[in-house]
Design a protein around this nucleic acid. Structure first.
Lengths: 284, 284
DNA sequence: CGCGGTTTTGATTATACTCAAGACCGGTGG
DNA sequence: CCACCGGTCTTGAGTATAATCAAAACCGCG
């Protein structure tokens, strides 16, 4: 039957070896993510809950923002995935970023007038919408939360930077390995990974565009990881069978994710969760 | 003899076809850069001048920050260049970012505890040092300046993102072309380009590491740009001879630099400059 | 006048791309 | 129910781009 929390988030469950997703009441993914950085006070928590009032939905493949569009608002992904891309005249496309629940889109909307990227929904999405004034409000009224949002932003840049390292200096197989390890870790953070299994709602073509290789080459490289039983990527998600080996191939080092800098989930947030009966009874 | 302004910055001058650099009194490069985003009020200008009190110097190739180091302060480059890099176990290295005067290093120092990158001085450098408390002060006491700094940060991310597009989807020659156009534009912004000529204190090996190619391949690709008289890169700097062609090859589109979003240099800042006699007499 | 580092070029090899065709798979209409 | 269709996925053959290995030219410097 699974766990229950006190807000809405997408959780993975394993049943008969199948992965499926389900909406549960729970603190949304952003809250989970911020809790890595910040032990939220009650007033902070109430503040963030109030933000959740306005929601917007997008369908799979909907263009959320286009190159050249004026920015108007900030989105926090509650459910679903998006990607950011740039396209050259001749059709070559690079996906620069993949966002999953808890990630923030258009963080710089208050600062930048026009977007230089496309933002597209990879799946049906549900987003919390923040008007620009609301963000200002967060920074002035809840500096702690503001800092936590800045941490998200810093982390985004670090992830982008590490992707550049991958595309610039890792081979196709290494890049893929690195990508899978990273996504698993990010999914785990927002409780969307079930052990070493997680959903990956991305076509091979999209992943190729994110890795900076062609689709054909992506298939060949994946084959190499799959034939050694290191990883399996089917329609029902990804399963990493040999995490050590995948780490080794990827030359993965975690510091760039900046997850362990401020001990946090260990303290107030988890203590709080343990007071919720349904959670306390569930096993982690 | 050249122009004179009211603060310190590195300026290029052309004499007998040679490029040389010289320190002039002038509003430092940061101020020049911020002026793209913000028409500074007198109090803002005074505030930023006061920041300039503490200066730190580094020698060429000095390691300013190493992977894993704890962040402690923020640097604004007054003079000189730096790069940010990541190194894999086996020695492969990716340069993720190149900073020139006016750029901010360790913007996220207040948020992130440890650096995931190396930061190295490409040349002798002079930096304005901001302690973390000072940055907080800027945001609380001078929100306009704070926003301008955030704009720098947003721009950095956008540049990083475009570099990923280059490395992921542009050929070696296209990448180089793109890099040169970008650097010229960024140099121009802080008045360090003299027409289509500018200094580039980067070895071929470093540029190769920034472009995600080998040194050998860099040479061959440069040859192709040089033999067509599109560009010349000697020890005395870079000269772009055929800017249109370089743009075309690079598939360069400027919006990602976010320079023209807020009309600015056109208004207050330039008006102010024109009141300084030496500048008013100099030709632009 | 060597010396070490950078720059340059050549020959060979590996990685990744292009073009092409076929398999698979879910949805649609006869 | 099955044939057809478009999109995704997969594999093969030939080619281009970039990497590797190696060696020579260059150049500032002690």
């Amino acid at each position: 039957m699974g766990r229950r929390w006190d807000c809405t988030v997408l959780v993975l469950q394993m049943q008969d070896g199948e992965i499926q997703d389900e909406i549960l009441e729970m603190t949304h993914a952003l809250k989970r993510k911020l809790s890595v950085f910040l032990s939220m006070s009650d007033s902070e928590e109430r503040f963030i809950d109030r933000l959740d009032a306005r929601t917007e939905s997008f369908g799979k493949n909907d263009q959320i923002v286009s190159e050249g569009d004026a920015y108007s608002k900030i989105y926090v992904i509650k459910k679903g995935w998006t990607y950011h891309s740039r396209t050259l005249d001749d059709g070559r496309r690079q996906i620069t970023r993949i966002d999953l629940p808890g990630d923030i889109c258009c963080f710089f909307a208050p600062i930048l007038k026009y977007s230089a990227n496309n933002i597209v929904a990879l799946t049906d999405c549900e987003m919390t919408v923040l008007e620009l004034e609301q963000l200002a409000e967060i920074y002035t009224e809840q500096p702690g939360l503001g800092a936590a949002l800045s941490w998200c932003c810093a982390q985004d840049e670090s992830v982008l930077s590490e992707r550049l390292v991958s595309v610039g200096r890792r081979s196709a197989v290494e890049r893929l390995a690195h990508f899978f390890v990273e996504i698993r870790r990010r999914m785990e953070l927002v409780d969307l990974a079930e052990g070493n299994r997680f959903l990956l709602p991305v076509t091979r073509e999209q992943l190729a565009d994110a890795m900076g290789i062609t689709t054909v080459h992506l298939f060949r490289s994946m084959r190499r990881l799959e034939k050694d039983q290191i990883i399996a990527w089917g329609t029902d998600g990804v399963a990493i069978n040999d995490m050590m080996e995948l780490h080794r191939i990827a030359k993965f080092t975690e510091p760039y994710l900046h997850y362990t800098e401020i001990p946090s989930r260990t303290d107030r947030f988890l203590k709080k969760l343990s007071q919720i009966p349904q959670y306390a009874s569930g096993q982690q």
